[in-house]
Design a protein around this nucleic acid. Structure first.
Length: 295
DNA sequence: AAGTGAACCTGAACGC
DNA sequence: TGCGTTCAGGTTCACT
């Protein structure tokens, strides 16, 4: 569910109301998500102030006044939401009527300007997880991640190095978080369509014999950045249940060129193709067989 | 070693 | 109405 643009949207929704807020109380409604909650999580959070909300790839990173960092991965269905948005409505306690079935962790927070509210982590499928670290660099989850696609360390040369000699389809190679961190099934499909590359092409075909990126790979790097920037601008994509921290949906799903559009005409200007769906590594891939080609 | 598929878990949509 | 099947934005682990 949440790929980089959705996680960034959540981060932007949380930051203004959470940074500077003190966590007064923490309620855990179960012992685990995908993994057990970290040992001593409740005690480590209560009484501390959140100093900032950051993001690395698909991970949210909340800095605490104790110096520790809380890491949150949303899995497929994880969400953070305010029980009441602290600015639109008067602060209000989290009442049973506001509770939902999969609210696994509830914080009571107090912000010096915005007052008291509740922040809830919900996650029906429980593929998400929480980590707590003295230093985020200690987290094994962040350890092997590739460059941020919107940062300066992401470029066609780096991808060429990773893809050289690879027979795996480019679709699978782009999903590998060690190559570039933050892409998921939606944005890989969209980026490959923009770059006019067939998702089934072997990743190695985008690299010259000398190990240099072919022009199409340069185009792919550009397409990845473009599609992510545009998606962030409109608050990510809401397919089924993605919500930002204020409870609103994203709008990028209206701009999908191929994702979830099997049978529809390809939106590429002058292209006569029809969007097809295939399965790669057990996951749906959407593409246009006419304007997307082998490198 | 690299690449694929199953597993983790719940809910929604669909066909009968 | 109900029941069974399929699929879903991610990651990790166990096979070939």
């Amino acid at each position: 569910m949440p790929e980089l643009p959705e996680v960034e949207t959540v981060r932007r929704g949380l930051e203004p109301w959470l940074a500077g807020a003190t966590i007064e109380a923490v309620t855990l409604n179960r012992a685990d998500l995908r993994f057990p909650f970290p040992e001593g999580l409740k005690a480590a959070l209560e009484g501390t102030t959140v100093t900032g909300v950051g993001r690395r790839a698909k991970y949210l990173l909340m800095s605490l006044s104790t110096g520790k960092t809380l890491l949150s991965h949303l899995g497929m269905t994880g969400s953070w939401r305010f029980a009441e948005h602290p600015i639109d409505k008067p602060p209000r306690y989290y009442e049973p009527t506001l509770a939902e079935k999969h609210d696994h962790m509830v914080w009571t927070i107090a912000h010096p300007e915005h007052g008291r509210s509740h922040l809830i982590y919900a996650d029906p499928r429980r593929f998400g997880f929480i980590g707590l670290y003295d230093d985020p660099a200690d987290s094994p989850y962040l350890e092997g991640l590739g460059p941020e696609p919107l940062g300066n360390d992401f470029h066609a040369e780096g991808m060429a190095e990773a893809f050289a000699g690879k027979k795996a389809p480019i679709k699978a190679a782009l999903l590998d978080q060690r190559v570039v961190a933050g892409l998921g099934n939606i944005y890989v499909a969209e980026a490959l369509h923009r770059a006019h590359i067939l998702p089934t092409a072997a990743a190695g075909r985008l690299v010259t014999p000398k190990g240099r990126p072919k022009a199409m790979l340069e185009g792919l790097a550009q397409a990845v950045r473009q599609v992510l920037v545009e998606a962030i601008e409109v608050g990510g994509s809401t397919l089924r249940d993605f919500r930002n921290a204020e409870g609103g949906s994203g709008y990028f799903q209206h701009r999908f060129a191929v994702y979830d559009r099997e049978g529809e005409p390809c939106p590429t200007p002058l292209c006569t193709g029809t969007v097809e769906r295939i399965v790669q590594s057990g996951r749906s891939t959407f593409f246009c067989p006419v304007c997307q080609k082998l490198p």
